[in-house]
Design a protein around this nucleic acid. Sequence first.
DNA 1: CTCATTTTCTTCGAGGCCCAAAATAAATGG
DNA 2: CCATTTATTTTGGGCCTCGAAGAAAATGAG
Lengths: 409, 409
Amino acid sequence: MRRGGGRAARSDDVRLRNRAALIAALREDGPRSRTALAAATGLSAATVSAIGGALLEEGLLAPVAAEAQGGRGRPQAPLGLNPARATAAAIVVSNRAVDTVIVDYSGSEIGRSWRGALPRDAGPAALSAALAAEIDAARAGARRDGAPPIAALTIAWQGVADAEARRVVWSPIVDARGVDFAGPLAARCGGRVAVMNDAAMVAEAFLRRGAKRSGAPTDLALLLVGPGVGMGLVLDGAAAAGRASSGMEFGHMTHVPGGAPCACGRLGCVEAYAADYAILRGAGRDERDDPLAVAQAARDGDPAARAAFAAAGEALGYGLGRLFALLGPLPVALAGSGAAAADLLRPAMVAALEQALAPELSGPLELSVAGDATALALEGAAAHALRRLDAALAAGAEIAGAPWREAVA
Amino acid sequence: MRRGGGRAARSDDVRLRNRAALIAALREDGPRSRTALAAATGLSAATVSAIGGALLEEGLLAPVAAEAQGGRGRPQAPLGLNPARATAAAIVVSNRAVDTVIVDYSGSEIGRSWRGALPRDAGPAALSAALAAEIDAARAGARRDGAPPIAALTIAWQGVADAEARRVVWSPIVDARGVDFAGPLAARCGGRVAVMNDAAMVAEAFLRRGAKRSGAPTDLALLLVGPGVGMGLVLDGAAAAGRASSGMEFGHMTHVPGGAPCACGRLGCVEAYAADYAILRGAGRDERDDPLAVAQAARDGDPAARAAFAAAGEALGYGLGRLFALLGPLPVALAGSGAAAADLLRPAMVAALEQALAPELSGPLELSVAGDATALALEGAAAHALRRLDAALAAGAEIAGAPWREAVA
DNA sequence: CTCATTTTCTTCGAGGCCCAAAATAAATGG
DNA sequence: CCATTTATTTTGGGCCTCGAAGAAAATGAG
C-alpha cells in the first residue's frame, strides 16, 4: 500500500507550487494586478511580487495595459500571460473532419485550419503526415507573424488512447491500431504531444465555460453521443481517466448482455443502442441517413423513430445508473447529435435511471445540453495543451520563444 | 474549473509533509534507524534527525530495542511508533456479528470483543449504545493497563455511508436509516469516528498484506460476495470512494434491466444474482440454507446449484466488464462466501468478461482469493483509524495520552 | 500649483526548512 | 589501546514565505 504519505517535500517545492498557482490563477481568470493575485492565491503581496518578478524575467508573464480604474491611489499594474512566450496547438479528429487551432500562450487563437475526414485506411505514417500538414496549414494562416514554435499539442480523438496518451489503442475513425503520434509529431512540438479522448476534452471545456458563469461546479459526466458514445468525466475539477487507457469507455459498457451488435464487435454495448448508427438501425433507416432527420420524424410521431430514441435513452439512463452506482450521482451534460435530440432522449433516460438505482443513491437527474461539440473539443484540447505548457514552464523547463531578455532590456 | 493548481503552499507545509512521510514510513514498514528512514523517505539524514527528534519530544515515536547487528561502526538506534501515544478502535458490523478490536498506536492489538448480530429493529440510540458497549468490552479485556483513551474509531459496515462517513444512508443489516454515529460515539473517540464500507476496508487490508510480500501492486477491485455484494476499490494505493456516498455500490449496479429482484427493491442488480440469497434462490434452496452447502452440491454435480453459480459468475463478470470499461482493467480479489466458491464462479466470470469487453480493454482476468473477510475488515478498519490518527498527530493535533515529557525526563 | 491621502508595489529582516559538510558518538577488530 | 567504520547530531548556507516598513504613483482639496 504505497500510500506515499506523499513523497518527501524539498524546500523549493514550495516555490514551484506557488509559481504554478500564480500561473493557474492567471490562466483561469485572466490578467490581474499583483494585489488581486495575492487575494486569489492566498499568498502574501510580498511573495506575489517576488514570484511575479521572476516570471516576468523569464518572459512567462507580461504587463498588460490597465483599464481605467478611477479612484485614488497608485493604479494597479495588471500582469497577464505573455502571448509571445510560447505557442500551442489543438487538433480534433472526428470521422467527419479534422479541425486544428493554434493558440498563443495567453490562449488567444492565432490560426486555424480545417479538412475533411481522414481516409479510413491511412497508415500510421500517413496519419502523422496529415496531422502535421494541418498544423502547418493552421500556422500558415496565422494572423500573427513571429510566433514561437509550437511547444505542446493535444489531439482530441474519438477512441481509446493508452495511458501515456501517445498511442491510439483503438478508434472507429481509422483502421490502424497502436499508432504512435509522439514520434512523428513530437519533433515539432517539443515532445509534448498528448492524445486524449474527445469526450474528455469536451467535458473540460463545457465545465470551464460553466464555471465562468456560475459558481464552481466541479463534477460532470459529459456524454458525447454521435457516431459513437463517449464520456468525459470531471471529478473535483480534474479530468478523471481510467487506469490503463485514457479510459472511460462508457459507450462500450454492456447494456444488455447478448444484445444488439456494436461497432466494437461485442454485443449489447450502450453505443449499440445510442450512437447515430444505432438510432438509424432502430428506426429502420439507411446507414447513411441523417440522424437529425430521424429525430424530426420522431417529433412528428413516427413510431419506429420514437422507439429508437426511447431505446437509446434507456441505454443511456441505465448506463448512468451503473456509473452512479460506482461513483455516486453526478451532473450530466449531453453533447453531439444526442444534444440535438435531448428532448427525445430525456424521458427514457430519467425513467431508466429510476429503474436502475434507488433514489437515495442517485437523486434526480441533472441534465444539461452542451453546444457545438467540435468547438468545445477544440477549446478543451487547447486548454489541455496550455496547461501542460504551464506545468513545464512553472517547473522551469527551457522552451524557446518569447521576448526573453529583450523585453526587459 | 477550479483545478486549484494546488492551493498556495506555505513554507511550513514542507515540514508537515515530511513529518507525515516519516510517520507513514514507520507505519508501513515498521521500526527503523534514522539512516534507514532517510533512505526510505528520500530525506537527508540531517532532516530525519531533526524531525525524529521533534516527534520523540512529542511522544509520537519511541526508541526501540535494536536487534544485534554485528559489524563495525556505531550501531543503529531504531525508532518506532510509540505504542503508548494513543489508542484506536475498529468495529466490523456484519449481519452475523459485531467484532471489535482495540489497537495501540504502533498497531498492536490490545483488546478484542465479539457479539452476535445486532437486532434488525434497533433504533439509532440502541445501535450507538451497542457499539459503545462493545468498545468498553474490548477495553475491559485489554491485555495492557493504562492505555490512553481511544482517539479514533473506524466502523466497517455493510451498506452505504454518506460522504462525511458519519451516517449510514442505507444498510441491509438494520432497518434504521440515516443513523449518525458521530454524535454518540464521538465523545469517546476524540471526534474521530468514520463509518466506512466493509468491502473498502477488506480491500485495504488485502492489498496491504500483499504489498508486504511482493512488490507493490497498488490497484485492486475487491469483491466482497456474501449476504450482499460489495466492492472495495483501491487505485494508486488509495481507497477510492464515490462522490456523494462512500460509494462503489458495485452490487447494486444493474446487471439485467428488469431482471431478478434485489434486496434493495430494484430489479436486476448484480447482487440479485451473486449474493448468498441469490445463490440459494437460484438453486431452489431455502433462504436459511447454507450457501457453502450449495457450493458443495454444485461441485457434486447438482445442476440447479451449478446453474446458480454460473449465473452469479456471469453477473460478476459482466459487472467487472462494466467497471473495466470505465476504469480500465484491474486486478480482482474475491472475499466472503464468494471466495469459498471461487472455483465455481471463475469460469463464468471469465466467460462473461470476454463477452463484455474487447480484449484490448480488459486483458486476461487477474483473480485472486482473499482469506477471512472479517479478519481482513478488522485489520483494514484498524489501519484506517490509525492513519487518521497519524494525520492528526503529524499536523500537531493535541491528543491526550502517552509518556509525554516523562519519557524524556 | 502644491501637498496630504490613498492604494499599490517593492524592499528588508525575521523565522523556518532542507541540505551538504563537518563534527561527534559508539561500536569493532587488529 | 587505537585506527577504522558507521550512525547521528551540529553547523552554516541557501531558499522561501511573511509582516512591516518604505517607495511609487495616482487623486483631489485647498
